[in-house]
Design a protein around this nucleic acid. Structure first.
Lengths: 165, 165
DNA sequence: CGTGAAAATTCTTAATG
DNA sequence: CATTAAGAATTTTCACG
């Protein structure tokens, strides 16, 4: 992927509601050009969507935990992800190398809720669980490094003046 | 938090770029009322921001791994998160209960890059690492369950007709 | 707090080089 | 592909209940 596209993606990762006007200024293109590029990035699947970042504490989900799971009977078909998908407390499901089969990220209201969810995980997927409770989150979902800060592109052949109508 | 706010948050979690027009229709309020509520949710910190959801494969970061870290010398002050913050490959940092001190989520270009990042983690924070490679991600960042589907609010005292201008 | 409407921006498309 | 221009839609603010 090329430089300007990376800058666009970087900017949208930091602020997914940036207007095309601001985006255009950041990357040094016209509004239409940026709009076209964003549309192409979206339909190519580079940008998969937009989401509000919310405080889970405010949503009464203050307890986060990682749950490593392992099938009780390794000879049976492994369809744990589908069988667990109905549990809304599961934020993410990663298939991993190592001793465990999957690593789940779950968010719940508290210890009692965690206990209930663990039981549901075990019975739904016929697995054993090993749980690691999160005590705090110094940082999460940081924007990936995608080329340079995207600010140095602005001064590359484009006058900062707006022509006006 | 009350019912309508939860519905708003739920909708924005699924689509962070929903227009206030659509949002207003979903929760059965006027555009202005919804706009006010979103602003309050933002400044109360319930909505912390908006971000584009991107494909890490497209960004040349196809390899994800969890890195559990433990201080080499537990008697020294534990400031690993700050000392690791400069590494852009670290997506998230969780302080955890259990045998390890922190669990890091890292995204890199490949095995060689992972090796480099692990070395940087060890030397930057004076820790030992135990790494779990992610093979695939069945699902990630699913929207949390926040009250009912937010569709049943619409038909609660509000005619679906648009009054027009 | 909610509503309705008006003004300022922005989004979106189309024509053009 | 990028640019400019123009109509449609949205965001944002305001006065009022």
């Amino acid at each position: 992927m090329e430089e300007i596209d990376r800058a666009i993606v970087a900017a949208l990762t930091v602020d997914g509601r940036l207007s095309y006007t601001d985006l255009a200024e950041k990357v040094g293109l016209s509004v239409s050009a940026v709009h076209q590029r964003v549309r192409r990035l979206e339909q190519r699947g580079v940008v998969k969507g937009y989401a509000a970042r919310v405080s889970f504490e405010s949503l009464d989900l203050p307890l986060t935990a990682f749950v490593a799971i392992r099938p009780f009977d390794p000879s049976q078909p492994d369809d744990a992800p589908e069988r667990l998908a109905h549990l809304p407390e599961i934020d993410s499901c990663y298939s991993v190398a190592g001793e465990d089969f999957y690593l789940l990220l779950v968010r719940v209201a508290g210890p009692a809720d965690l206990e209930r969810v663990l039981q549901e995980i075990r019975t739904s997927a016929n697995v054993t669980t090993r749980t690691t409770v999160v005590l705090s989150t110094p940082y999460e979902h940081r924007p990936p490094k995608v080329a340079q800060p995207a600010d140095q592109l602005r001064q590359r052949g484009v006058p900062a003046e707006s022509p006006g109508s």
